[in-house]
Design a protein around this nucleic acid. Sequence first.
DNA 1: CTGTTAGCGCTTTCAT
DNA 2: ATGAAAGCGCTAACAG
Lengths: 355, 355
Amino acid sequence: MKSIPEKIKIKDIAEKAGVSPGTVDRVLHNRGNVSEVSRKKVEEVLKHIDYTPNVYASALASKKSFSLLVVMPKYLSGDYWEKMEFGIARAAREIIDFRVSIEIIYFDQYKIDSFCQAMEKVLKKTPDGVLLTPSLKSVTCDFTCKLDQKKIPYVFVDSFVEEAHPLAYFGQHSHQSGYLGAKLLFTQKSDLQEIAVFSFFHVGQKPSNQISMRMAGFSEYVMEKRTGCKLHRVTLDAENPDQNEETMRNLFFGNKGIDGAIIFSSRAYVVADFLKKHNLNHITLIGYDLLDKNIVRLKDNTISYLIAQRPEEQGYKGIRALTDHLVFKKEIKPVNHYTPIDILTQENIDFYLEF
Amino acid sequence: MKSIPEKIKIKDIAEKAGVSPGTVDRVLHNRGNVSEVSRKKVEEVLKHIDYTPNVYASALASKKSFSLLVVMPKYLSGDYWEKMEFGIARAAREIIDFRVSIEIIYFDQYKIDSFCQAMEKVLKKTPDGVLLTPSLKSVTCDFTCKLDQKKIPYVFVDSFVEEAHPLAYFGQHSHQSGYLGAKLLFTQKSDLQEIAVFSFFHVGQKPSNQISMRMAGFSEYVMEKRTGCKLHRVTLDAENPDQNEETMRNLFFGNKGIDGAIIFSSRAYVVADFLKKHNLNHITLIGYDLLDKNIVRLKDNTISYLIAQRPEEQGYKGIRALTDHLVFKKEIKPVNHYTPIDILTQENIDFYLEF
DNA sequence: CTGTTAGCGCTTTCAT
DNA sequence: ATGAAAGCGCTAACAG
């Protein structure tokens, strides 16, 4: 049995130290203008008691306000990014009474220029903190350097750029999620012979950091445990569904031995829809991310497993980390907060959607 | 791009409605003592604006305080219940400034009397809300009836009693988690012949609700898809490790055909340790819950999958539901908030532990 | 019934 | 350098 003791207030400390509440406040916040003697007296009292400020009273009285900027890809409804914005919006509602305002700047993830423009906007606005989804490494680094100079804290979500110095990162350990993808694929069908390995990006572009790392993780597993397995590496293009159809036709009908497939982008449904349409249900498919269209194919068993990464939570926690740092002066734990790698199947998907 | 509009305050509403802030407050909280005319005026204004109160200012000014009681099993360090208490403690810290205090009453989950005594204590204290882990159905129902009479809201965590009327339930869909256990077992090894099915309880007692439902889910899967598979149903006893050893010896050495096993209590490590010790690594094992000892066996591959249920989150959300209801007058969604059924493997376990 | 007032715990301004 | 005082948005007690 436990109960909670009465909370100590600034007034209590002031009385014990024989100074005024104002002085205690000055000591607590290192605002200066305190004599050595007073400071000592207050600190002595603080040592012997466990004072935690009432952050709500503090926020109410404070005239400080904070502006956060979010830089993320523009998206369509049902997209992966929508979930991240849900999380950001949830955090926004929770912190509005602390005078924290959030503005979102969207960019076109397939156009470098668009990303650069977004960066410019951010720098012009000089916010108190930034949440961003890194794009091309070099451009991102240029930008974060400038933020470093201006001492504006920033948080990465979704993917991570090694060279930068973010306050924190919330996202998946992509390499490991690729490794797990391989493991699930081989568990689902232990005697796999030939596997189609899909990635998804635009012509003339490179695959995203995220996707490259998943592929690396996948390859590592295969190297370790299934060197005998034949891999067909295939690239699909977001802009060109007809060509994708053609590519998959050639692949699957030209290689009848293929009995497994994995796709490292969030658009597993593109492959799943093809398999479904052509009744290729002997092929085990693994995909990533909880898009509505993916879920349909998980439920009808075209996709065996989806691996998910809680984008909603990434957005939420990213914003919370910024406000914990700025508003509540909390120590943020060093850098990488990997979100769990969730394994979703027909049997447990509904409980993730509800929650 | 979006930005957040200025927040509306009670004072603003009062001005627009041509009444005093006091009156607006009375309308907002149905405190009575308001003329029909004033009420109409205020409600008219409220219709046209989107007012959300500053709950922090409200809590600060309010003299109301709330006491919550938690009834849960006593436990040892590293136990399943410890994690639930972590979640409760986290919630407690968050709401202390709202004048909500939490007291925990522990009972011995293997002694009905102990549970009854805990109930008595609760009724004597007449708290504002109760969080409890149901024990025997009949006893629990007796108790919740009395809470219903006194109009004290209560929340279930961990397991659920159909006949009661809780504010909410946070826990797993046990039947489905049993079903998933079966699915994973058969996926891991597609040609299973004989399966050992373990439950774990004290002599002379019945298995917990939770365990029975998992078994039912498991059986359903087998009935549906694997009627040919032979099941060995075995009960272990928490009090009697020597006898368990004996039981497992007879089982595994007397039935060499057994190539799979599942255990529906949180103590999968008991079986895992046996398999490990006797080098029975051809047997695929599935277990439940993230006990430290289970995790060791997951990591060394003795256990193939652990199915987990987020006890920390159950505790946290349970307390939050009570305070949302009591303090913030939020509508709590009807009853069942199933927590996700997490699938843990060697490859993703670390990210769950960190998070 | 209603407006006014005091005050929750804290910050910030303003004299001193 | 320091204490006193005002006020954040809201509630609750108090006159009228």
